[in-house]
């Protein structure tokens, strides 16, 4: 039985903001199906009575002292920007014409 269809892979790619090609969809659908088959094995031992572990070190609300210290300058923060304008990141159009 197939875990994941080609259409589902296309949907995942869309959710993950990756414009995958038709050829990639074929390859990934087969591979993801195989991988999901293998990893589904976790269900064999994951009983209701077992609490989940999200992190090896149980820590909550770790703070450091609230002290003023130097951060990146505006120029440093923009130094890797694909495009910058007037001290800001310049990005492509976000809203459509009708919005």
């Amino acid at each position: 039985m197939s875990n994941i269809s080609r259409d589902e892979v296309a949907h995942l790619a869309k959710l993950a903001r990756m414009a995958v090609t038709e050829e990639e969809l074929d390859t990934f659908a087969g591979q993801l199906d195989q991988i999901l088959d293998a990893v589904a094995k976790v269900g064999e031992v994951a009983g209701d009575d077992i609490p989940p572990t999200s992190h090896a070190v149980p820590l909550t609300n770790v703070f450091r002292p609230d002290e003023v210290r130097p951060g990146l300058s505006q120029d440093e923060a923009l130094s890797g920007a694909p495009a910058a304008e007037e001290g800001r990141f310049r990005v492509p159009r976000i809203l459509g014409e009708e919005q």
Binding site: V9, L12, R17, M18, A19, V20, T21, E24, F28, I35
Partner: peptide, 22 residues
């Protein structure tokens, strides 16, 4: 964003991102 990630990521990264998204 989608076109950049398509070009900038290799196959294994794409596989894992989709697997995680799933």
């Amino acid at each position: 964003m989608s076109l950049t990630r398509e070009e900038g990521f290799g196959a294994e990264v794409k596989r894992r991102v989709m697997l995680g998204t799933y």
